[in-house]
Write a protein that binds this DNA or RNA. Structure first.
Ligand SMILES: [Mn+2]
Ligand SMILES: [Mn+2]
Ligand SMILES: [Zn+2]
Ligand SMILES: [Zn+2]
Lengths: 144, 144
DNA sequence: ACAGCAGTTTAGACAAAGTCTATATTAATG
DNA sequence: CATTAATATAGACTTTGTCTAAACTGCTGT
């Protein structure tokens, strides 16, 4: 569990509203986690969220962190980003956008949606519908 | 370890050449695994490769399967596809192409490179170079 | 107030993918 | 054939995540 400083949290009533809007009852733990996530656009692993939330006094169990992140992802409050084979990143920005992934550093950064444009679109297999398009530009550090 | 039927393997001398071409010494185990991988364009997990290779008489250890797939990926013989948070898929097709990922079934299928076109390209962060672009269209089964 | 109840949280056991280490085996070299 | 370098192996270990059964929380109706 990484030890990351808790940054400027977002106002409690605001996140409570966000949760209610999505039909999620705003429990202590969910609000805590939402305040961390939505303090800014960012990409956090479950482990990182765990580290931040348990930095202060309030303890939240591992199961609850995973449950909550899963719930938020399901309800569309956060977006799961799959680029690192060892863990999921939860993206607090649900606006359509894409990612750079630096395979050397593990760093994940945003590509604004308008920066990239798909100009043709593949035909979907029978009986399926698109759930989203993920574009990842893998980066390596230039070594010279 | 899944139990998958060993399909038509590719000729041994052919894969031995492929390995040599990339500076890989063609050991028994590596050749076995290469024959499975390159029998056709496909996406296999380490576990699946393990299941196929150990279906017959010849036993190959878990460590060797993982070492070999990692080596092949490093040398550019196969391509790692990261779409499922629980495992890596090894793609025996290294031609530039993209993927559909059915989140309901876990099925991974190809999108031919020409079917999709990026018409603008983001500026890379300082000190980095692009290693590749992965486009994944997530699919769900239409339920109606 | 308070019993009852659904929803939530929790500790800790468990599972799956993958890595690591120390040893054994194999292959190449002189 | 003897020596050495490269590989392969078993199995312990790590990490991320899931599951289960028990405890807790906060309402609801009386
Ligand atoms: Mn993994
Ligand atoms: Mn995982
Ligand atoms: Zn993002
Ligand atoms: Zn493919």
């Amino acid at each position: 569990m990484e030890n990351i400083l808790k940054t400027q949290a977002v106002a409690k009533p605001e996140v409570i509203n966000m949760l209610k809007q999505k039909g999620i009852s705003p429990t202590q733990q969910r609000v805590e986690i939402a305040q961390i996530l939505f303090s800014k656009p960012q990409h956090l692993s479950a482990d990182q969220v765990m580290g931040i939330v348990n930095n202060g006094e309030q303890r939240v169990s591992k199961a609850t962190v995973y449950n909550t992140l899963g719930l938020f992802a399901n309800k569309g409050l956060v977006r799961e980003v799959i680029v690192d084979p060892t863990k999921i990143f939860y993206d607090s920005n649900i606006q359509s956008h894409h990612h750079f992934y630096n395979v050397d550093s593990g760093e994940l950064t945003d590509i604004h949606a308008h920066t990239v444009q798909l100009n043709s679109y593949p035909e979907l297999p029978e009986g399926t519908e698109a759930d989203g398009v993920d574009i990842v530009v893998r980066l390596r550090n230039k070594k010279d």
